[in-house]
Design a protein around this nucleic acid. Sequence first.
DNA 1: ACAAAAGTGTTTCTAATACACCCATGT
DNA 2: ACATGGGTGTATTAGAAACACTTTTGT
Lengths: 226, 226
Amino acid sequence: MSTLILPPQATPAGLAVDVVAFAMHAGELQVLLVERGSLPHARTWALPGGFVHLNEELHEAALRELRVKTSVELEPRLLEQFYTFGAVQRDPRGRVVSVAHMAVLPHGTVKVSGGGTALGAGWFAAHSPPPLAFDHHQILSSALERLQVRLEYALLALEFLPETFTLPELQGVYEAVLNKRLDKRNFRKRLLSQGILTTSGERRSGVGRPAQLYRKASRVRMPGSL
Amino acid sequence: MSTLILPPQATPAGLAVDVVAFAMHAGELQVLLVERGSLPHARTWALPGGFVHLNEELHEAALRELRVKTSVELEPRLLEQFYTFGAVQRDPRGRVVSVAHMAVLPHGTVKVSGGGTALGAGWFAAHSPPPLAFDHHQILSSALERLQVRLEYALLALEFLPETFTLPELQGVYEAVLNKRLDKRNFRKRLLSQGILTTSGERRSGVGRPAQLYRKASRVRMPGSL
DNA sequence: ACAAAAGTGTTTCTAATACACCCATGT
DNA sequence: ACATGGGTGTATTAGAAACACTTTTGT
């Protein structure tokens, strides 16, 4: 396997990544956007993203762009590629394909600020975003769909919360992501019957009756075991 | 929105597409492979694919590569992007990302031959393929998973068959894709209760009792209608 | 007549839904 | 005491799964 050069028909397209980073704030599903500081679309809100470096894996590039452009410090709890947007005219500068990633940031990720070429960064309601640069509105819609599909599957909702949380908080994540109300009793039945939560024995105070705290079960219960 | 040139940090990576084209032959799920005629991996089986042209949409490139490399003439019944493989070292020639597509070819797609740089083309058992070039084994596995997930959803199984077909044939598609046996009675109940099939009134002859022919319902029955 | 493949019903179990009241705490 | 939010149980329905024999044709 000798090292060859790319053949002449290889298109030197620009290779970019964009990141749709979700988090829960104020009981709402929010998405992290940056204000572009350079052309095209200067001073327009956009998804954090940029060009992939030559010796950088796609997910590394996504992580780097997220960190540099928004100054978030916490590790994303999930970061996965979900679709590649490659329409010929999607970027006025030339042929640029963007491998779009979806990220979930844990609770506590609030402070963000611009970095690199971004003038600023901020959180916006994911279901009603401001006007966005390029085809980023399409990318966001597509990410929302994927997030909704993956919510049940794979305990994804837990990634939005701190280590311990109450059932009403967890239900809030479901409702914010699915953008609809759920029945409290059925929700609890469904979640608890899966055996993936254990009570943390403690209670959190506030207005009204305190809620039981839960955490992810250290070892997931197999069907048939106690 | 003026036309700018790509900034210096834009990586000129090679942009390729690969196509995992499935079809049913001899009661088995098969995948279309080509024998590479040039380096690297010359004389190794690989997925049909190649570089995207500068003014070509991704799905157009996938369709072109499928046609040129394998000489298939029929239109794919489904052709959709499913994942982008971009590991830095996946191609010894340099940085090449491949937007992988999954295709379903209808019944009757049998004759294939090499074209372009492909020495030959052929059908192989999708669940036990020969050794493949690059990371194509991983791409194939990934496509199989996606195919299985999408099988129920969207009447995908019908795309493997000719316009009219028998229920045992349809069940054969499910069994071949899922790689497991299904119960005949439950299968028929499930499919017929969806109201998406109508009998074609005719019967096909062969060994044993002839089977009823079906076709996709011209207008899908809505819940509540007759 | 027999071999081969198509066709057919019932029972059981599980999961989803709809729905209304009592409980524990802070003020 | 009351306002606030947390917690609980039952009945109904729909879909999934398990399971064996009869029918129609060609030879």
